[in-house]
Simulated assay, not measured.
Amino acid sequence: MPGISTKGKQMPASPIRKLVPYAEEAKKRGTHVIHLNIGQPDIKTPKVALDAVRNHTIEVLAYSMTEGSEMYRGKIAHYYSKNDIHVSSSDIIVTTGGSEALSFVMGTIMDTDDEIIIPEPFYANYNGFATASGVNVVPIASTIENNFALPPIADFEKRITSKTKAILICNPGNPTGYLYSKAEIKQLAELAKKHNLFLVADEVYREFAYDGREHYSILQEPGLEEHAIIVDSVSKRYSMCGARIGCLVSKNKDVIETALKFAQARLSPPTFAQMASEAALETPQEYFDAVVMEYVDRRNVLVAELQKLEGVKVAVPQGAFYCVVELPVANADDFAQWLLEKFELDGKTVMVAPAAGFYATKGLGENQIRIAYVLEKEQLVTAVQLLGTALKTYNA
């Protein structure tokens, strides 16, 4: 029998999706599963985006430009200018989701066995992209005790070697919901310049900043033009996860020219999805104001309910729509599977994402879960009540 590649064996399973078979079995038994495991917003996609596809007049569904349509990229640049990020259409490559942008970045700036430093916990698929590119992730742990703030810059410096090519952050963070301050971004910028590294920022949750805080982009930082690379996506901003449209943004011309070669290998991003994404840029500010208000309410309800549970510790998110929760269990993986296989109350159970898969350091996060608060408040209350009962039963 032919063998599987070493890379294939090393490819990590998604902590967000690996429990899906158990959830499907629970549903077949008639159990209602409340999904706290995946960041699929229930917010409606802007009508203007759906209408753009619905009312199209295309007669031949042709390839688009490899880098994305000129008109769409021009409109993206205008969107960025409204966020005090000044780039041109030539600084942008449209990608098939933020995921493809990340894989292009890995291929563009890193060779096999090069190193990328990432504060952990981090979006689990960063491990996957790194494995696929033969790149080594060098993690730096942030902690729930200080809400997953940026680790000390001295900790970054200790880990920089001749193989280090970049630092990667997610801002606001998935899975933590932490929003890096302007001062923290400036610290990272100085470090990148000092050691001649790239600073890559996954900014897909830019709009979701709470409690009067403002998002500060790495491309707002003066003097970082040759070092900064942004990864972005329409998935969460406009509740358009299925569109699979994102982009890579950099003022470094070598980065753009090289990434374009990777983009040419996959031909072009999808045409209809670009149409929808271009139209979505017309979404009025009131949409985001309402969405942010809704997520703040959900966060407040979720955190308040979790804080009622004995032995549970929760980090308070400042952005995005996730939080990391520490549970009074030894192994959150086992607990999450048990919730789906063995537990139900009034015909309901809860699906969560074990947080160990969001860490690269073995042993970290084993008693933590990530919760995505993308459900209505009543469902969140019910889910936490189920979680509380489940913890008592499981620990008994």
Score class of each variant (00 low, 15 high):
Leu36Asp: 01
Asn37Ser: 09
Asn37Met: 02
Ile38Lys: 01
Pro41Gly: 11
Pro41Asp: 11
Asp42Glu: 14
Asp42Trp: 04
Asp42Ser: 12
Asp42Asn: 07
Ile43Asn: 10
Thr45Phe: 05
Thr45Lys: 04
Pro46Lys: 15
Lys47Ser: 13
Lys47Met: 10
Val48Asn: 03
Val48Gly: 01
Asp51Ser: 10
Asp51Leu: 11
Ala52Asn: 09
Val53Met: 12
Val53Ile: 15
Val53Ser: 07
Val53Gln: 04
Arg54Lys: 13
Asn55Gln: 07
Asn55Ser: 08
Asn55Gly: 05
His56Phe: 06
His56Trp: 08
His56Leu: 13
Thr57Glu: 15
Thr57Asn: 14
Ile58Ser: 05
Glu59Val: 11
Glu59Pro: 00
Glu59Arg: 10
Val60Gly: 05
Val60Glu: 12
Val60His: 14
Leu61Ala: 10
Leu61Val: 15
Leu61Ile: 15
Ala62Tyr: 08
Tyr63Pro: 08
Ser64Glu: 13
Glu67His: 05
Glu67Ala: 08
Glu67Thr: 09
Glu67Lys: 05
Glu67Leu: 08
Gly68Ala: 04
Gly68Arg: 02
Ser69Ile: 01
Ser69Tyr: 06
Glu70Gln: 08
Glu70Phe: 09
Met71Asn: 12
Met71Arg: 15
Tyr72Gln: 01
Tyr72Cys: 01
Tyr72Ala: 02
Gly74Trp: 04
Lys75Asn: 11
Ile76Gln: 00
Ile76Arg: 00
Ala77Asn: 09
His78Lys: 15
Tyr79Phe: 15
Tyr79Ala: 02
Tyr79Trp: 15
Tyr80Thr: 02
Lys82Val: 00
Asn83Thr: 00
Asn83Asp: 05
Asn83Gln: 10
Asp84Asn: 15
Ile85Gly: 04
His86Cys: 07
His86Glu: 13
His86Asn: 15
Val87His: 01
Val87Ser: 03
Ser88Thr: 13
Ser89Thr: 05
Ser89Lys: 12
Ser90Glu: 15
Ile92His: 04
Ile92Asp: 07
Ile92Gln: 06
Val94Ala: 06
